[in-house]
Amino acid sequence: MRKEAVDLYQKLTNEWNKKPQNFEKCLEYLTQLKIILSETGFIPTPGSPIDKREIHLARDVFEIGAQCSIAVGDIHGFERYISQLKTFYFDFQNEISESPFKYQLIGLNLLCLLARNRLSEFHTELELLNPHLIQTNIYIRHPVSLEQYLMEGSYNKVFLSKGNVPSPSYNYFMDILLKTIREEIASCMEGAYKKILFREAGHMLYFKKEEELVEFAKERKWVMASDNYFYFQQKQTDQENQNIPSNELVMQMIEYARELEIIV
């Protein structure tokens, strides 16, 4: 293992453990470290002997990197770190000791996928984990139950769970998630309500200030009547049904004819 890597790593951990952290400096160290690591080939290839110290160091660097990029709001950076970390978490499971940050970061990744509405990847990641762990580990259970609330439509529970995140780093993605959910609720309200009082709408959307709601209503083009109600236009479904979708029908018939021709 190269000496400068160790030195840089020392500096990085010192900087990272300081309160408050200087993110710019951390990022600078990280970039340098990454260059050194890629030169030495930080991920061992099959057949070559495994240097445990080296792997540990590389893993710790990536963990700090992942947390650092969340702190500065760099989602793409975070995803890159996570995909590198997955090698250490899963492929080297048996060679090295488990990191204390492992589940926190996996949970964060799950939340990230959820917040960005990439559900199929969310479930693919989830499959890698042991079912018992999903139920018991607080870091994992949080995003998993969030997904369940989302699917059911218990949006209020999502808002409530903002209060008890397992780690402060989860807040960043929670905020993104809440924004998406607000849009969801709004579209549900449009469909399910004929009218709703201004104050109640604010309640349902979990706005604390009136101005926020006014702004939000403007974006969604909600019109407030003089009696302080929002009125929603019900979708005109009946009209659609009366038109015969001739194009579609013709296409279908031609297809049947073609298939029949093949058979006969």
Binding site: C188, M189, A192, Y193, K194, I196
Partner: peptide
Amino acid sequence: EFIVAKAVRDGVIEANIDHE
């Protein structure tokens, strides 16, 4: 309330909610 609202939007049921 939220669950029913979502069901309405997803087209599972046809209904209206009266909030008050």
